[in-house]
Amino acid sequence: MRLRRAIGWHRPDVLSVDCFDTLLLRGIESEEDRIRRLGFRIAASLEPRGIRVDPQAVASTRLAAARAEYRAAAREDREARHDTILGLQCLALGLDPSFAGPAAPLAEAEIEQETCDLRPNLPLAKLLREVRRRGTRVIVVSDMYLPATAILRLLENAGVAGDVDRVYSSSDHGATKRAGRLFDVVVKAEGVRADRMLHAGDCRLGDLEAPRRRGIAAVRLPRHHLTLARSMRRAGNLIVGEPAHV
């Protein structure tokens, strides 16, 4: 394994890994398709409360809210936040704003669906356990709108939370991996020199180029077959007139 060789070469004090498509794996389904399924899950969860909503309206408002929040985040040089996305969705659907809270129906439905959709990268998890037993600290660093507490729940549900010491999410710190500033946060919080850290993940910019610019050794763990499959699926969606995930 590429990462095992890098660990042997660098012998880091802190090993940092990406979460999604690295430690937790997704299939080829696009975000839009996942959100469409989520619309039905949320509609079903609200019905016992006497609230009837159209699943398609739930999905379309969730997508629109995410686009709006990501545009705002790009202007402000930060990561999008899940609570803001859900707050905008509640506003669009006419739901009580409290439904956007961390333990409220909308957020819980998303965690439930992510739990069903994600699977652990078992070979990587095994390597992380070995590394931790040898005394190296293992952390997860993710560019994600979900807070670290939610990501930790997903790791727990996948059975791999015990293989990491801490989770850092860009949405908690207002700084991203791809811009490099989240790595500055991590280095300071961990009390480690940049050259004593090794990072690994699937994204060329956020997981390879950005940490190297910060003096952090990095190795990319690409999933070429998945990238190709998702590209083919997006092309198919465009042909039939459906929105493609960007």
Results as ranks from 00 to 15, higher is better:
residue 240 V to L: 06
residue 171 S to Q: 07
residue 148 A to T: 01
residue 206 G to Q: 01
residue 246 V to F: 14
residue 118 L to P: 00
residue 60 S to G: 03
residue 114 E to R: 10
residue 40 F to Y: 14
residue 82 H to V: 00
residue 181 R to K: 15
residue 39 G to T: 04
residue 52 R to N: 05
residue 35 I to P: 00
residue 169 S to H: 09
residue 242 E to C: 08
residue 69 E to G: 04
residue 59 A to V: 11
residue 160 V to S: 07
residue 2 R to Y: 05
residue 216 I to V: 13
residue 148 A to N: 06
residue 90 C to R: 02
residue 32 E to R: 05
residue 194 A to I: 12
residue 103 A to V: 12
residue 9 W to G: 07
residue 128 L to G: 02
residue 211 P to C: 12
residue 95 L to E: 06
residue 178 R to S: 15
residue 121 N to Q: 03
residue 103 A to F: 11
residue 182 L to D: 08
residue 150 A to R: 09
residue 58 V to A: 10
residue 42 I to C: 09
residue 153 R to P: 00
residue 110 E to I: 05
residue 140 V to R: 02
residue 96 D to Y: 11
residue 31 E to Q: 09
residue 93 L to R: 03
residue 222 P to C: 09
residue 213 R to L: 15
residue 34 R to V: 15
residue 126 K to R: 14
residue 162 G to T: 04
residue 12 P to L: 04
residue 145 Y to A: 06
residue 234 R to S: 06
residue 140 V to F: 06
residue 153 R to F: 01
residue 7 I to W: 00
residue 178 R to G: 10
residue 175 A to L: 02
residue 113 Q to C: 10
residue 92 A to P: 03
residue 232 M to L: 14
residue 157 N to I: 02
residue 79 E to A: 10
residue 21 D to I: 02
residue 89 Q to M: 15
residue 212 R to L: 04
residue 34 R to L: 12
residue 51 I to G: 00
residue 134 R to S: 13
residue 165 D to P: 00
residue 73 A to E: 05
residue 119 R to F: 10
residue 189 A to N: 07
residue 139 I to M: 11
residue 89 Q to C: 09
residue 50 G to C: 01
residue 51 I to L: 13
residue 73 A to W: 02
residue 140 V to T: 03
residue 186 V to Y: 02
residue 12 P to S: 08
residue 148 A to D: 07
residue 128 L to I: 01
residue 246 V to N: 05
residue 81 R to G: 08
residue 166 R to K: 08
residue 222 P to F: 10
residue 102 P to Y: 11
residue 227 T to V: 15
residue 175 A to I: 00
residue 112 E to I: 07
residue 99 F to K: 02
residue 103 A to I: 02
residue 6 A to V: 00
residue 159 G to F: 07
residue 96 D to V: 11
residue 116 C to F: 15
residue 216 I to S: 01
residue 245 H to Y: 09
residue 64 A to D: 04
